[in-house]
């Protein structure tokens, strides 16, 4: 990843879902190497915010920009420069572990011929590469899902409760991956209830009532 400074900047962001204002007037900025943890009660709009940044929901007001970074990055949308790790793993049971990962790396635009082996090794799934994903446990599927963040370099990681279904060993593995990502100039925006292993992160507290962020 380039050493250029990248910044995700949100101004007066608001989102409406089903006629309900989830949040409004949200301001925050995240730049290279930083992590932002979004907290708040259930229904405060943590997942909504992540999906909005990922381009999966439309904002009803405000601005959201990703500036700087590699040449031509300004052309790309925020969504094309982010990884979204939601509640669902996007793993096809009928495909093998390797096939699943290879598809997503190709689809999400990894460099031509990039090997997937290192990413599988990074999350301890290399031995299962040929196994149908149907045989994986929930935690293993989650890790397979995480593998694509490693396999395809994208500057912004959007993680929605990333530690769910992971045991402590895998959690520390994820923490290490997140550290490496930030050390390489990446950014993380995560939604979480408890600690997820991010050092010196900033917190964005969403309030379900007024919807004003800090």
């Amino acid at each position: 990843m380039s050493t250029d400074l990248i910044e995700l900047c949100a101004k007066d962001l608001a989102c409406e879902r089903g006629g309900r204002l989830v949040f409004s007037g949200l301001n925050f900025a995240v730049s290279s190497g930083e992590a932002l943890v979004v907290t708040g009660r259930n229904g405060a709009g943590k997942s909504t915010l992540l999906r909005l940044i990922a381009g999966l929901l439309r904002k009803s007001a405000g601005e959201l920009d990703l500036t700087g970074g590699a040449a031509g990055a300004d052309e790309a949308t925020v969504a094309e420069q982010s990884h979204y790790l939601g509640h669902l793993d996007a793993v096809k049971p009928a495909l093998s572990v390797g096939e699943n990962l290879r598809f997503w790396t190709t689809y999400l635009g990894a460099p031509r011929g990039a090997p997937i082996r290192p990413a599988l090794e990074a999350i301890d799934l290399a031995q299962l590469s040929d196994l149908p994903a149907a045989y994986l446990s929930a935690g293993q599927r989650r890790r397979l899902s995480i593998a694509r963040l490693v396999a395809v370099p994208r500057p912004l990681w959007l993680l929605d409760e990333p530690t769910s279904a992971l045991d402590t060993q895998s959690q520390s593995r994820l923490a290490e991956l997140m550290r490496n990502h930030r050390a390489g100039g990446g950014m993380i925006v995560a939604a979480a209830h408890g600690p997820i292993g991010l050092d010196d992160s900033r917190e964005l507290k969403l309030d379900a009532q007024a919807g004003a962020g800090s």
Binding site: L56, A76, D89, Y107, G109
Partner: peptide, 12 residues
């Protein structure tokens, strides 16, 4: 249902 559609929309 399995979340793949979200990722399909985030492709290049």
């Amino acid at each position: 249902e399995d979340g793949s559609l979200d990722l399909l929309m985030m492709g290049t």
